[in-house]
Each structure stands twice: as structure tokens, then as C-alpha cells.
Design a binder for these strands. Structure first.
Lengths: 143, 143
DNA sequence: CCGGATCCGCAGGGATACTG
DNA sequence: CAGTATCCCTGCGGATCCGG
């Protein structure tokens, strides 16, 4: 399911020049958004929901390996606040809450697609770089 | 300079099906890389170097607004270790150290390009979503 | 002087226990 | 089941010091 679907809106701008950010207020805003969005857990949750469509709390927790309940709740709430995720509570017992991407969240997950592809394509180069770095370190002359 | 240059390698795979990650070891590796790369400072440094080509420590510090010296050094060192950045020390007085992206780092910055475009395109929608969320909160019946 | 290492105070994240 | 509350500890930011 992790297919690199192209977001038409992004594709449309992909080969046109992006107006270089001039307005510092806009720049700060964009940087702020990057700050919230360029987060490990945000990205992994985004991916999990993009792959699975709709997930319940516990399902999401299982898909996003290693996340704590606190960070799952916290991150998903901020994503809801930012309009990336829709949270639906079914008032039954036992409780049933499911999460799904909004169109906005879906567009972001598509924007991140290139990064996933990059990671899948280049992870071996990173490992090589780390080994080379470690080798250089140990080979250094310690004055 | 923030142009959405297309990475040929990514573009080539963009419309083909990505082999769904099956090997859990690879998956863990990719998630690990995402964990390091999906970081606010990493992304902002990547962007600064992509825009400017080569920067000295202090220049980089000025381009990446709000970063502390500690996080700048720390992040840039990890990026060097992962092969994203090349760090060149000129042994002169006063010291002169400059940073530039490796081809690997450059390819990552291109992969992140879609996210920048997304942020620039949708930041107003996020703000609206936040206001709507706040309005819904204040309009709630508090039990 | 530049680049960065070090120390410290505090916020943020992890693990666990508890509740509607 | 889906969180909240609590404790604890890592990790970040800010200030200061240092080597070249």
C-alpha cells in the first residue's frame, strides 16, 4: 500500500519555480509548521494511517512500533488540531475511537512519500557512511 | 533557490509500485532513519545548505533561526556521520569550518522538497483548522 | 575572535498504574 | 478500550568557558 501517489497539487507546482519566500512572517509560519510536522512520531502515524485508512487507538499503537501511549495521544491530538486527522468517538462500552486522515493529512502523507522512498533507497549508503565515519574516527591521530 | 528539483532516482520509482517492505529488519532500519531524518533541525539545516551551497558555522547558525549552538553542532555532526554533510576544517586562526551537502544529503533535501511545498501551500488551511478546533473546544458542553 | 565543549536547570518523553 | 495521572529520567536550551 505504500505507493508513491502523486499529489496533483504538488505535482502541478513541481516543475514551476516556487516563489522564494520573501515575507518573513510567512517564512516563520512555514518554519513553525515544519517544526510540528517534521517529527518522527507524526510521520510514522501519518504513514500508518495512510497505509491502513482508518485505525482504532490500539491498532494505531501497534502499527507505530515503539510509541508510548502518551506520545500517541499527544501527537494524534495535535494532528487533529492541525486538521491532519479526524478523530471519531463512538460512545459505546467498551469505547471505540477511530482515526483517519483528512484530505489535508492525506496530502501531507503524499508529500512525505519522497522521503520514505529516499529512506528505502539509501539506507545502505547511510550505513556505509557510518562505518566509514567510525573507521576514520578510530584511524585518527590523537595528537 | 528553493526550487523543487526532481531527483531522477526518486522520479523513476515515483510511478512504479514500491515493493512493500516485507523484511522486518529493513523496516526497522528505515524507521530508524526516518527517526533521525524527520527532525526539525535536521530538515532546516538541510534546507539552509541546499539553498546556500556552503556555509560556515556561524552563517549556518544565522540561517537556521532559533537553533542553539549545541543543537547545531550536535545535529550537524550526526548528519556528517550519516553521510549527509561534509565538514571541512581550515586549520587557521581564527578557525574556519564550512559545511556542505554531500550528494546523499542533496538527494534527501530533494526528497523533502515536496514537504516544503506542502507547507507553503497549506499553511493557511492549518491555521483555519486550528481556529475551527479552538472554536469547537470553546463551544463544547462541559459535561 | 571562531567553533565548540561543558555545566546546569527545566521541559518533554517513557514506563507504569489507574479510571470511565 | 481508550485514555488520564504519576513518576522518573533523558535530552534540550542558555550561559559560560576554552583551544587554536
Amino acid at each position: 500500500m505504500r505507493k508513491p501517489e502523486a499529489d496533483p497539487e504538488i505535482e502541478a507546482r513541481r516543475y514551476g519555480p516556487i516563489p522564494d519566500k520573501i515575507d518573513p512572517a510567512i517564512e516563520a509560519l512555514v518554519d513553525d509548521i515544519i517544526g510540528k510536522v517534521a517529527d518522527k512520531w507524526t510521520m510514522l502515524i501519518l504513514e500508518a494511517l495512510h497505509e491502513n485508512g482508518t485505525l482504532r487507538y490500539t491498532e494505531l499503537r501497534r502499527k507505530v512500533e515503539g510509541i508510548s501511549q502518551k506520545m500517541l495521544t499527544q501527537t494524534v491530538r495535535r494532528m487533529e488540531e492541525d486538521g491532519l486527522v479526524r478523530r471519531t468517538v463512538h460512545p459505546i462500552i467498551p469505547p471505540h475511537v477511530d482515526y483517519t486522515l483528512t484530505p489535508l493529512g492525506d496530502s501531507l502523507s503524499k508529500a512525505f512519500c519522497g522521503v520514505w522512498i529516499w529512506a528505502e533507497t539509501h539506507y545502505d549508503e547511510i550505513q556505509q557512511a557510518r562505518q566509514a565515519f567510525a573507521a576514520a574516527r578510530s584511524g585518527e591521530v590523537h595528537s
